[in-house]
Design a protein around this nucleic acid. Structure first.
Length: 455
RNA sequence: GGCGCCGUGGCGGAGUGGCUACGCAGCGGCCUGCAAAGCCGUUUACACCAGUUCGAUUCUGGUCGGCGCCUCCA
């Protein structure tokens, strides 16, 4: 069990994760607002935190991943209204799409996927605590958080409260004591078709309170890792942190872990920018293996460019690994090669450096190929262990898509006969024919074999 | 304007005060009937200018450029 270090947004430093209970790590990652199909940029944190959980488990940690679904929100009201349907129906519809789309990634589900709309009780409880402690106030059915009552406000996003833009906020400005204050609870307005009863009347929760409440419900306060896309640092996570700190007298989480944004060209991919590639379409085109690999080629904290050339490179790489795996035998790997596997894991333990880990995996493969070329047998156990952490062990499942048929094998035999007769023209013709049928001929020391052409 | 991040070889993308990242593409070689795959090698990569240092791509300051957040956003 390695010690895990991660870059903490709040301190800006590499921080050791110190489990509250030995061996147990809780992760809360902010999920999507369900008003449209999610795009490949939304998928990055899903991939990062799913893989992180996998790695932690492979290290022997009992890791719990919670990813919420925001199903109550202005965007949902607006989108539903535009489509002439009930907001609850839209949210339900888009939630099932979200689940189906992320399932295409084959990373399993988070351990808990709470819906904001079903966790309102916990939010009301937290809001009451905030009011009781003087950090929030109710006005005409709304409840606002008193930002200046929190001396630590701004620490996470490195902002000075007095330097922040003020008064630009349209909504509820006239009710706020201070323009910086944000809504914890919003009284129902005309046109909103969902609401909950509260001590302040019918209404609905603000955006930020849901995460404080749901994280606390599933992981307790002071849990190990809280994550999300870097565009959530402010105001969302700053506000979450403030709510729990002030309402519970304890920091929400130990380490704030933020993933970099996915770039489309030079800009971030975002619905608001309008340059999105939908996850289900991208998954259909490239396949999940390529997508997982693609995400791992960049460090999670840095921006990553989404373009055809990069995806093409990832696809080629994955196809080659699948090929190379065919040369390996099942079973233990040479002990001298274990150093690569260990370094692979060390790199992941050090701020989850997947690109560096991939380099180690590549080093293992190169050495394996050298040994194979020298006639040695190489067991695939190390490779399987590494790929398994990345949810890519399926690359070792040889011919999962079905092997060549009898006709293909007959063609191969005919080619071998032509080669034996040194009839190169015929041999090449047969090779081309096989190629057209989707099979690439590989002549090796032990004879020829057929490999499915990378799609 | 404020805060933060970044500028690495054809492309993607790590990292380090002095030692090959890695991958994709290209080129040369080995192997092969020819290929493919694999292996070996390969094109003075670290925006610019100063400074610290025996030595900086890596530290410090500045310049230029890009991005993110400051409003909903993964």
């Amino acid at each position: 069990m390695r010690t895990i270090s991660l870059h903490d947004t709040r301190t800006g430093r590499l921080t050791e994760v110190r489990p509250r209970e030995p061996g147990k790590i809780g992760i809360y990652a902010c999920g999507p607002t369900v008003y449209a199909r999610i795009h490949i940029g939304n998928a990055r944190p899903f991939v990062v935190f799913s893989l992180l959980r996998r790695f932690l488990r492979s290290e022997g940690y009992e890791a719990t991943l919670v990813v919420n679904v925001t199903d109550v929100n202005d965007k949902i009201y607006d989108a539903a209204k535009a489509q002439g349907i009930a907001s609850a129906d839209l949210a339900r519809d888009m939630t099932s799409h979200y689940v189906a789309d992320t399932n295409l990634l084959g990373l399993g589900r988070p351990d808990h996927e709470p819906l904001a709309g079903e966790t309102v009780g916990g939010m009301i409880d937290l809001i009451e605590a905030l009011i009781a402690r003087g950090h929030a106030y109710a006005v005409e059915g709304d409840v606002y958080f008193r930002v200046r009552s929190d001396s630590a406000y701004g620490e996470l996003s490195h902002r000075d409260v007095d330097a922040m833009d003020q008064g630009e906020d349209v909504e509820g400005t006239h009710l706020k004591e201070d323009p910086l204050d944000f809504a914890l609870w919003k009284a129902t307005k005309p046109g909103e078709d969902t609401s909950w009863s509260s001590p302040w009347g019918e209404g609905r929760p603000g955006w930020h309170i849901e995460c404080s409440a749901m994280a606390e419900e599933y992981l307790g306060v002071g849990f190990e890792i809280h994550g999300g896309g870097s565009d959530l640092v402010f105001p969302h996570h700053e506000n979450e942190a403030a709510q729990t700190r002030c309402g519970r007298g304890h920091e929400l989480t130990q380490v704030w872990m933020h993933s970099g944004l996915l770039l489309m060209g030079a800009e971030k991919m975002a619905k608001s920018v309008g340059n999105v590639a939908l996850l289900h379409e991208v998954a259909e085109r490239w396949g999940r293996d390529t997508l997982i690999w693609f995400f791992c080629t960049g460090h999670y904290r840095r921006p990553l460019s989404f373009d055809d050339e990069t995806l093409e490179a990832a696809r080629t790489r994955v196809a080659r690994i699948r090929d190379q795996a065919r040369r390996l035998t099942d079973g233990l790997s040479p002990p001298e090669m274990a150093v690569h596997r260990e370094r692979f894991l060390d790199e992941l333990a050090d701020d989850f450096n997947t690109p560096q880990a991939l380099a180690e995996l590549g080093g293992w493969l190169s050495e394996a190929n050298r040994r194979l070329d020298a006639g040695e047998e190489v067991g695939n156990a190390d490779l399987r262990a590494m790929l398994d952490v990345l949810h890519l062990a399926n690359l070792l499942d040889v011919d999962a898509g079905g092997g060549p048929g009898p006709e293909d094998l007959a063609l191969l035999e005919a080619r071998q006969a032509a080669r034996a007769a040194k009839d190169w023209a015929e041999a090449d013709r047969l090779r081309d024919e096989l190629r057209a049928r989707g099979w690439e001929v590989r002549d090796g020391a032990g004879g020829a074999e057929l490999v499915a052409v990378a799609s």
